[in-house]
Structures are given as C-alpha cells and as structure tokens.
C-alpha cells in the first residue's frame, strides 16, 4: 500500500518489557510541512518509540500509521519513509558508496541514486573510502544520505546531531528545514534542546515513556507561565519562594542563589515582594527557553528506570 499523506498518527503505543514499561500508552501526531522535535531525557523511550513506528520492534499494543498505513504494509517503504536510526549501521569494511548501492539495489533504485545521495550530503570525496575510516560526522551524513535515497515524503531521524561539529549541526538544521519547506514530514528526536528550539516548529515531549506535552514550540513554551521566566534576586530567597509559591508561581533556585519564577509576571512578583516586606536586588523578565520548560516538565520523571 502507499501512504495517502505525510501525516503520522501514533495511537496508544505501548511497549512492555519484563520489568519495564518503556513506552506507555503514547499517542501523538506529526504534521507534514513542519519539523517536529521528539524530545525527552535519555531513557525516556524515544528510540523504542521510533523503532516501533518503523516495524523493527513489535509493540505490546497500539500502532503508528503513515498516511493511514502501517510501515510494514507500505510497498517499498523507503520511498515513503526515510529513517536514520543509528549512525554506525554500516559494514566496517564496505565503502560508503557501496553501502548506498546495496540499499539502492534492494529498493530497486539505480546505482546512480547512490551517487546522487552522496553528493547531496557532501560525501562524494569519501565515496570510495571504507566505513571504518569515517568520522562520526561522516557516518551521520552517510546515514542521512541513506534516509534520503528513496526521496521519501516522511523523514525520521534519531539524534541526528550526535557527533556533528557546529558547522555540521548548522548544515543539518538547514537541510531539515528545507525538507520541511518542500512539504515533507520531518520527525527528529533529540535530547539537545537548544538545537531543537532553533529547528523545530512543533515538539512532542515525553518522559518515562509517557506523553508530557505536544504542540507548536511557541504554544508549549507559552503554556508555562505566559511564556515568561522571571529572574529574582533577594537576600531572603526562602521567604520569597514561599510567598510566590503561595501565589501559584513556580519557583526554582538557580545556582547563583537567584530564583527563577514562572507563572507570574514581573509586576505581580514585585507586588508580592512589596506586600511581604521582602527586599529585591534584581527583577528581570526573561524569554522562556525550551530548556527550562523541558526541565520543569520532565522534573522527577527522568530518573533511571
């Protein structure tokens, strides 16, 4: 079967291992024409989720559909869905070009497709070098070349920025954005949040195998304290924290003893401090960043399981 659209719908996906529920009733959707960041701390179940979506790991229950069709039921799946799951997934003694030729052959594509894919990721000079001689960055590029080989409508990448230098990361960001602008569906998992903030249009945040939040980046940020984080310094942080918490603020103590407050705007914080008779040394409204939202959302759920 062929996928009717680039939309991905994940429904009630669950993976129960003997002791551990790695993915727990996870549902989310991914839209075409946008880059979607799939975020979670290490061990949250991101990779297991992606592998279940792609038919590599059998879910205990639930499913994932690409344009209404499960991955296993797609005809010539790499022409619909391109995936990069592990950068080291090539035979050490095979050249980069031959690695892609094997994939092209299995997918019924001409050998020239391998050369085009190599050129697209800038690996042509290393085409005839063996995989064991590749740097981690080159391996990532080769993995992306493989994912793009079938010119798929949907791209799924697991931690593609791993091992890339800053220039490589920018290259990847531009590539993925360009692919989304072409109308493709791009799902990128990462625990690097700063990178996601610059790249993603939407985010799906999971922790301990459960969905925490899903939506456009701005909306998810905004859902936490009107999008603003306020930095407050005071000689009596404990008293102020108690007062702000009582006023439904969310307070965390920063390493320099300052307080980071969400859920309350600077004017309200100033008022509460004034009425409580607490002296303020600093009161700064900051733009919320994904990193802080993320840490708050996943706090206490990211323990090693």
């Amino acid at each position: 079967m062929t996928a009717r659209s680039g939309e991905i719908v994940v429904s009630h996906l669950t993976k129960q291992y003997k002791q551990l529920r790695a993915v727990d009733d996870l549902s989310f959707t991914v839209q075409p024409g946008r880059v979607t960041g799939f975020l979670g701390p290490n061990g949250a179940g991101k990779t297991t989720t992606l592998r279940m979506m792609l038919g590599l790991v059998t879910p205990s229950s639930g499913n994932a559909l690409f344009g209404g069709v499960a991955y296993k039921d797609l005809d010539e799946p790499i022409k619909h869905v391109g995936a990069l799951l592990e950068a080291s997934g090539a035979h050490k003694g095979r050249t980069g070009r031959n690695h892609l030729r094997v994939i092209a052959t299995a997918a019924g594509l001409p050998a020239s497709a391998a050369d085009e894919a190599l050129a697209r990721v800038g690996l042509t000079p290393a085409a005839k070098r063996k995989f064991k001689g590749y740097s981690l960055g080159m391996k990532q590029r080769l993995g992306i070349a493989a994912a793009l080989l079938g010119n798929p409508q949907v791209l799924i990448l697991d931690e593609p920025a791993n091992g890339l230098d800053p220039e490589g990361i920018r290259w990847m960001r531009d590539l993925l954005k360009a692919l989304a602008v072409q109308g493709r569906t791009v799902l990128v998992s990462s625990h690097l949040l700063a990178e996601m903030q610059q790249l993603a249009d939407d985010v799906v945040i999971i922790a301990a195998g459960k969905l925490i939040r899903q939506g456009p980046v701005g909306e998810v940020l905004g859902s936490m304290g009107g999008g603003a984080v306020v930095r407050v310094r005071t000689p009596r942080p404990a008293d102020l924290a108690a007062a702000l918490t009582a006023a439904t603020g969310h307070v965390t103590t920063l390493p320099d003893e300052a307080l980071s407050v969400t859920g309350l705007d600077p004017a309200r914080i100033g008022h509460i401090a004034f009425t409580s008779g607490i002296e303020l040394h600093e009161l700064t409204g900051e733009k919320a960043d994904l990193e802080q939202v993320f840490l708050q959302l996943t706090a206490g759920k990211a323990d090693i399981r």
Binding site: L54, G55, L56, P77, I78, L85, G89, A90, I103, A106
Partner: peptide, 8 residues
C-alpha cells in the same frame, strides 16, 4: 536495522 527497514 537498515535491512529490515528496507524490507519489513
């Protein structure tokens, strides 16, 4: 992984 992605 690659092999079974190509041929589920």
């Amino acid at each position: 992984t690659t092999t079974f992605l190509l041929t589920p």
